[in-house]
């Protein structure tokens, strides 16, 4: 976990803990084999449901048990309960999941289970779910489970109202990025929303893909200059320059113009970085290679071949961790 100090325990304390844990492990193992046994026997009833709760309290990562729990719900509760009773049951289950999520916000199976419950729930309050996920993203704006879940909720809301929420969601990503632009999830969500918005053109901002692209590149330039080491910015830039949504809507010369402007811009920043740090910025250099490759490909030329080759050699030097990737790139570049 980030930001939580690891506890260094002395040998003695470790032994004490182990002793204390021994009993816990024993009862956990007993419960586990009991539940798995019942699962094999396809026992679906209130008693087995409770046992699955107990086991998931101890180990929420045990996805087999979440699967069993769903089997119990569909084979027992969904058959036995009236609609009213079922609503109450599902609401209770949502409460249980929420409790688990607060404790373990990064466990896939808990999120999965919530989605499944909502899909089967006879009466879901989607606005409430959106509120929950917004709260979660306020506390940890980079939890990608949260972003994924958010997209799920939004699509449900859109289906139920028939109205697109893309613009509102786009503004939401802007808000999150303004708070901290080292946020892959927010940029990523942007890549999902932009094609929708450029299609539906809800405001003048999305009238022309060229206008939008230029505005977005300006926004990104701010981030590049503020922190040239932040990789999320460079990866988003690569998406903007290579996405079909732009390539297919811009005419070739305009696209080439954009690439050339951006190449100049990144080269300038790289020079500033070199001047200050005595070494090139590897993200700048990688991006330069990418843009030069795109230019050659688009123009069907080999103008930058030598320069790319040289850049890749320098990259091996300043970014030795990825040395073999650069070797691979230069070997395969002209195939």
């Amino acid at each position: 976990m980030h930001n939580v100090k690891r506890q260094h325990l002395s040998e003695q304390v470790k032994k004490q803990r182990q002793l204390k844990d021994a009993n816990k492990i024993k009862s956990y193992k007993a419960l586990q084999s009991q539940v798995l046994q019942l699962k094999n026997e396809q026992q679906y009833n209130a008693e087995t449901f409770k046992l699955s709760t107990d086991l998931l309290y101890l180990n929420p990562e045990f996805y087999t048990i979440w699967n069993y729990r769903r089997d119990i719900i569909s084979n027992y509760y969904q058959k036995q309960l009236s609609k009213e009773e079922l609503i109450e049951f599902f609401n209770k289950e949502l409460g249980f999941i929420m409790m688990k999520l607060k404790e373990y916000p990064k466990v896939y199976w808990i999120w999965n289970h919530r989605v499944w419950i909502l899909e089967n729930h006879p009466q879901v309050d989607w606005e409430f779910e959106l509120g929950i996920v917004s709260k979660l993203l306020t506390m940890d704006s980079r939890n990608f489970h949260g972003w994924h879940y958010r997209r799920f909720i939004i699509s449900k809301l859109e289906t139920s109202t028939g109205e697109s929420l893309a613009l509102r969601e786009f503004d939401y990503t802007t808000e999150k990025i303004n708070k901290d632009f080292s946020n892959f999830s927010a940029w990523h969500n942007r890549t999902k929303l932009i094609p929708i918005l450029l299609n539906s053109k809800p405001t003048t901002r999305f009238e022309s893909s060229l206008g939008f692209l230029k505005e977005e590149l300006g926004y990104l330039k701010n981030a590049m200059y503020t922190d040239p080491q932040d990789q999320s910015v460079w990866i988003y830039l690569r998406w903007l320059l290579t996405s079909d949504i732009f390539i297919k809507t811009l005419d070739k010369d305009t696209y080439i113009g954009i690439l050339e402007d951006e190449l100049k811009n990144v080269k300038e920043l790289n020079e500033l970085e070199t001047e200050d740090n005595g070494v090139e910025n590897n993200w700048c250099l990688k991006t330069i290679v990418t843009i030069e490759g795109l230019l050659d490909k688009t123009k069907n030329e080999t103008k930058f071949t030598d320069e790319i080759e040289k850049s890749l050699i320098r990259l091996k030097d300043i970014d030795p961790l990825r040395k073999n990737r650069y070797t691979y790139l230069s070997e395969n570049y002209f195939k």
């Binding site: 980030h2 506390m139 940890d140 980079r142 990608f144 892959f184 940029w187 990523h188 999320s232």
Partner: peptide, 27 residues
């Protein structure tokens, strides 16, 4: 003091994020 951290769902996930993003961003 510490519990404040525990209550908040505040953990980074750069690595998994990269995976998600890279998926869509393959050149």
């Amino acid at each position: 003091i510490n519990n404040k951290n525990n209550d908040e769902l505040a953990f980074d996930d750069d690595i998994s994020e990269t995976v998600e993003f890279a998926d869509d961003m393959e050149l």
